[in-house]
Design a binder for these strands. Sequence first.
RNA 1: GCUCAGGUGGUGGAAUAGGUAGACACGCAGGACUUAAAAUCCUGUGGGCAGCAAUGUCCGUACGGGUUCGAUUCCCGUCCCGAGCACCA
Length: 920
Amino acid sequence: MEYNFVEIEKKWQAYWADNKTFEVKSDNSKPKYYVLDMFPYPSGAGLHVGHPLGYIASDIYSRYKRLKGFNVLHPMGYDAFGLPAEQYAIQTGQHPEVTTVNNIARYREQMDRIGFSYDWSREVRTCDPKYYKWTQWAFLEMFNHWYNNDTQKAEPIDLLISRFEKEGNGLVNAACSNQKIFSAAEWKSFSEADKSEILMQYRIAYQGETAVNWCPQLGTVLANDEVKEGFSVRGGFPVEQKKMKQWQLRVSAYAERLLADLEPLEWTDSLKDMQRNWIGKSQGAEMIFKVSNGDTEYDMTIFTTRADTIFGVTFMVLAPESEWVDKLTTPQQREAVDNYLLMAKKKTERERMAETRKVTGVFSGSYAINPLTGENVPVWISEYVLAGYGTGAIMAVPAHDSRDYAFAKCFNLPIIPLIEGCDISTESFDAKDGIMCNSGFLNGMSVKEAIPAAIDYVEAKGIGKRKINYRLRDAIFSRQRYWGEPFPIYYKDGIPTAMSESELPLELPEVDKFLPTESGEPPLARAENWEYNGFPIEKSTMPGFAGSSAYYLRYMDPHNDSALVSREADEYWRNVDLYIGGTEHATGHLIYSRFWNKFLYDCGYVCEQEPFKKLINQGMIQGRSNFVYRIKNTNTFVSYGLKDSYDTTEIHVNVNIVNNDRLDIEAFKAWMPDFANAEFILEDGEYICGYAVEKMSKSMFNVVNPDRICDNYGADTLRMYEMFLGPLEQSKPWDTKGIDGVHRFLRKLWRLYFQGDDFSISDEKASPAELKVLHKLIGKAQTDIENFSFNTTVSAFMIAVNELYDLKCNKREILEPLVIVLSPLAPHIAEELWSLLGHKESVAFASFPQYIEAYTIEDSFEYPVSFNGKMRFKITLSKSMSVKEVEAAVLADANTSKYLQGASVRKVIVVPSKIINIVC
RNA sequence: GCUCAGGUGGUGGAAUAGGUAGACACGCAGGACUUAAAAUCCUGUGGGCAGCAAUGUCCGUACGGGUUCGAUUCCCGUCCCGAGCACCA
């Protein structure tokens, strides 16, 4: 009987759905295991073969863990709010919800065909009010909490208010935007509006004015991770810096915990490094410099990591946006400075990037006094100093900082070397290495000694203190967009006020158009009665990462109306044991989720500090584009090998009408009307296409749909082939060249059970050789699956089946465990064989380990023996021999071996289970 | 510039507490079955040299060194590709 994958797959997918095979409940009798995929944004293009790569891997692991006796939570859902559906809505007038629901239906259909073992009863959609109720709830919790640096956790805002009433804010050590000191009496005298404004500086979700990434084409602000190289990640539009009042999350308060808790996580080093870089901790010191514009003297604070270089400071630099600029610009320099600021302001972010190494700057007219040498140094203003980091002002040490060096060279400022023997004639000496000179009391110390010594000195003198800075900024949390969660905030006499949690969800209102209003307000301003007891409601919506920050918690208890997740469900499922997804979320979702989780932990809603214990980043599947070559000004196409003899244009051709780089000419003619009368110059009777590896996208006609593979080969072949392609973590182009090999394997496996058309197995006992094949496979499959090395798992099956073929095996004793071991990888064929073997239950209920114990293999092995590193002969040894006995046996054999020819044996090296080496 | 990951046949890739490099698969070549095709099966397949042949022998894991009886694996240096960050003081 032929391996009829179409029928088999349809049958078992229906069986799993009807029997709710993969629905899961909390069960204290079994250990839990939580396997999660990063849920997809349901785009209009549907799934391509790259999407399921990670899903297949997680599905194999989930099924494997079930066989091992775990209670496995393996859910799926949709990250359904977002820009593309809204952009589409603006163009077509189609409501984003309609588009989204359609796309979700299509995604579901495609996923179902691959045979995933998701518990669909737990599906979540971020755009569902029942779901986003809890996104809004978390926002309100953040609004109602502040971060106490003394206890290192979030605390209720009411406790802060009562402290203000008792003692003012002088002793409060908070993560806070502004620190004007006030007393308890002053607090009580403040107006409601003043109090609200002060509290806003403490809240974890707060409204604050900062420079934000503004994208005019999208009409919204964006978070740092949504901008790459000056363009929006979604859409690729230019982004500029603009000062605006926006909702923000005080992620920076958690910087140290986010950094420290990274350590024990089972993530790849490169991903942890990305997060470490993004958090960007640097230890250094703040130092006070006296500055004077001729009339007034001020204390100006700067941040440096190189306190040891203070004797080499020859000038100071301010960021153009620094508040010091105005104070320190002298009347003589006013015009020059104003011109410079104007020039700097007009530049877009993109221009700044493009001119990244171009030195610009202007002298303020003021001078600072070096606190250690007492010397006067000029204060300059330059773009290369960032307002948002440190204090927005630096001390410049051109000898030992390449940026300061370039600046000094450009404006002819002095350069003083501070390290013995360093060469600074053409570039600065940035290494933290060498012996100090020209540095007063630091002379003779190494740099590593000098840094703490210098800080100790300035601390003792009261002109500076140790300080840690982070690059991690607070997350901008509002978007001037329609398709997102509304903020449960209204403005009572202009004061932003939280709704109560019992009033959630605040549902997204209907609007007539999805565009901003004529006056530039966000689309929600179009909604009728968008108000609360007569007060206007916030018109921005939340960003994409809001809904994805806690979705893994919701899966634990998806239908709970009274909590994000119940205590019982949280304590049973705890956190995600295995998370699979792409690296593109390294500095976005994976930071925000960790922050969100830590916040909920502080509040006592969840029991784990970290959401994702182990994380695997599947590689990207790139597209493999094909090209045809049209001779210019003709409708004649020339095959790849001959194209260089003609003047041709390269044209992308749909990869779905190309097979192994050979063009299906008839399909090509039918593909587009232009090509209906095309002529071809062939080589060897075929048209060979060129190819290139590119991103998989519609415009390059290189999108391969998983449905097409399921049609031609079946889901089990797709699953195994995607795994066979190479290591999970590696990026690779999609190429169907080898898919026949995998499909052949499944057919061969199928045939193992059939004699002609009849299902045929015997009850004969398995031979030791057959058991050895099986045992080897079980052991290999087990360790490989545990290590997520699925490509070698597939190979192991191919080897085993080939070996069983050589042994002409069709005994049920062997084949039953083979089917079970295979079932995580190719579940449909495994289920079918399992039922043919006479088992009614789905293999999902059988278990792996009992077979490991049931079969043993014989005890003797052939060991290769090498002589001075070269393989010479083999010797049969038994497993139970000690190393000494092995050595004696080898020695005895060696002395009679023709290869040694009487040479004296110096040493026998035994490497257990690998090789034996004789040294003469 | 900084950080990280990687470089193995015609191709995708195996093999690292140092131990027979190239598993498995694709492709290619030859063969069997067949009127033929499909499907299936068998054989060969890193390179050079010697041999009718079995086989032997040398060279080979980006390049140059080192440690070791033995290095794709460990150490130092160079080159190349990929990813992330990028005036973060």
